[in-house]
Write a protein that binds this DNA or RNA. Structure first.
Lengths: 152, 152
DNA sequence: TCGACCACCGTGGATTTGCCGGTATCTTGG
DNA sequence: CCAAGATACCGGCAAATCCACGGTGGTCGA
């Protein structure tokens, strides 16, 4: 399940989480490896699934999504099919976490306006009661793991 | 603030959010453009900040973070400096959203074990009362905007 | 000591990138 | 209506990069 990574592997992960599009030559330079050695390590990280992909980071506000919100959904039923279908259709739902606790799902939602957000929440309310919190700001858009967890 | 994007720009964003490391030649092919035209558009998207960067997507479980949790923090004070300092130090805190509502902050936290999570929550509890929910699963690790918001 | 294995390195041909000038379309002002 | 300018696209070329290859220096077990 978990892969064994040495400090060089971690350095590669950190670099590629900071800038996922650097050439392999530059990657090797940064982690003190030749380009071909860095390539081999990177391929291993990709093929073992440690790196699952690469994504461009899009500024939500710049493309018209002025509103970001966290919506918690208390879903009484056990028919999750329709909800998953909604998640596929509504790409405004950026993320969906199924959690323990009173609220079964925690969603991160982007909307162009409050009216748009209202529409989205209305759709979600079909499934259960919702709690919505607007987001003022977020520290970093996202941050991945930078080092192994303690004692492992 | 918001940039004007035509359908081709959106196609580029979609492709690069799906795979941020494809060569420009391939990108042009996918959006029906020559490599140089695709390059020019991409540079414009980068320089205007629509694309803020590229990141490798790391599988948390594969690198030893078996536990994912959402922690909501009710922060009574108004001294946010110490909290920001903690966010910088503790890279296990993947994301921090400041929101409206009763809970001022919503954090996404990765931990190697329940003991590790307990440590993290203890540190957070120094700042205020916390509510922690473990994450069973997440739909996609993340999904960015795929199309402009309605009527905009 | 031997041989298999592993991670690394350097090389060279194929590919990609970055930059240039040239062309077609659209807008603007006379 | 026409010319000037702007915009977006294309093709082509030099330089950088990618990629598969074989070679090297370690470690480990027989």
């Amino acid at each position: 399940m978990t892969e064994t990574l040495d400090p060089t592997d971690w350095a590669i992960l950190v670099e590629l989480q900071r800038d996922g599009r650097i050439p392999l030559t530059e990657l090797g330079r940064r982690v003190n490896l030749s380009a071909s050695a860095a390539t081999e390590r990177l391929k291993r990280l990709e093929s073992t699934g440690v790196i699952s992909g690469y994504r461009a980071d899009v500024d939500l506000a710049k493309v018209g999504f002025a509103v970001l919100a966290v919506v918690r959904l208390k879903y009484p039923g056990n028919k999750h099919g329709p909800l998953h279908k909604l998640l596929e259709q509504r790409t405004e739902i950026l993320e969906c976490l199924r959690t323990t606790g009173d609220d079964c799902y925690t969603l991160k939602v982007a909307a162009g306006s409050m009216a748009h957000l209202e529409d989205l929440v209305n759709e979600l309310t079909e499934f259960g009661s919702t709690t919505t919190n607007l987001v003022y700001s977020q520290t970093q858009p996202f941050r991945g793991p930078q080092a192994p967890p303690p004692s492992g």
